[in-house]
Design a protein around this nucleic acid. Structure first.
Lengths: 146, 146
DNA sequence: ACTATAGATGAAAACCTTTATCGTTTGTAC
DNA sequence: GTACAAACGATAAAGGTTTTCATCTATAGT
């Protein structure tokens, strides 16, 4: 199952959040992009159709979506934060293009072995892991060659 | 080979950076800690013996050490940045205690398989990866129980 | 040792990103 | 339609990091 805009709307309502035009607009931008987007980038995009929206609202909406687990944060993007709609609902990771910021998801992260060895070797009780790959997508490779 | 304070000093000199008392002091704090430290934490520690140092100098020194690859950034630590002296010089990753911030290094990250599959499946030319584990170290587990 | 100078320092200001405040507006349930 | 809790936008505040600039100092050459 993947998240549709309607599905997300319904989840937000269930959890007591109102569905305002502003939130719809932010959702539309995030859902319509294959790339991870910074709050500022989302702001600029939403502004094209919704000139009056405030940056504060972008942050508020992002925080709600993040709290509900509907968007994912990408960590490799320099300093600031950067978000992406959650596409596979199960545990997964990201492969990010350093050229165009496109993100590909993958689910078969086989870290159980490493995790067990580490746990045995150090006595740590392991709680979570962070795994991301960065590379250049086929399109950007071509652009670079030409 | 591990990095000694002398080794780092020599590398900085080679690259045209002067060895000032302030930089020595920052180095001493970073080298003397098993934990990852935020710029602010480094500032506070250095200040205990070097009351006049400015926060600016901390940032400048961190940036140099980072550029020279002598310290590592830890990504799991909430929002801000956090640094640690580079202990294994080879490619490695971190296991971080969420209780006390202690960091354990490990080198045998066996991601070559995943990387190859991903590369074949997506056409991406993979450049780097980010892998970190977070858990609770034995000491902090005990503290939590008692 | 002494001097010249490129580079480093500290204080303050500027920047950028994110969050809090507050009066006004609006979705939603009745 | 109305009432009310929630959300909005503008502005201010709060962090965290970088820039600026006048002063100082580590280093190389004498």
């Amino acid at each position: 199952m993947r998240l549709s805009e309607r599905k997300i709307s319904s989840i937000m309502k269930q959890r007591g959040y109102k569905l305002t035009p502003q939130r719809r607009a932010v959702l539309k931008i995030i859902m319509g992009s294959d790339n991870h987007l910074t709050p500022e980038a989302i702001y600029q995009s939403v502004r094209e159709e919704h000139q009056n929206i405030g940056l504060t609202t972008i942050y508020r909406t992002i925080n709600i979506l993040s709290e509900l687990g509907l968007i994912c944060e990408v960590h490799t993007a320099g300093s600031g934060r950067s978000y992406l709609v959650r596409r596979p609902l199960e545990h997964h990771h990201h492969l990010v293009c350093s050229g165009c910021n496109r993100v590909v998801d993958f689910s078969n992260c086989d870290l159980a072995d490493i995790e067990r060895k580490l746990s045995e070797g150090t006595g740590f009780k392991i709680e979570e892991h962070l795994l991301e790959f960065v590379g250049i997508c086929p399109d950007c490779q071509q652009t670079a060659e030409s």
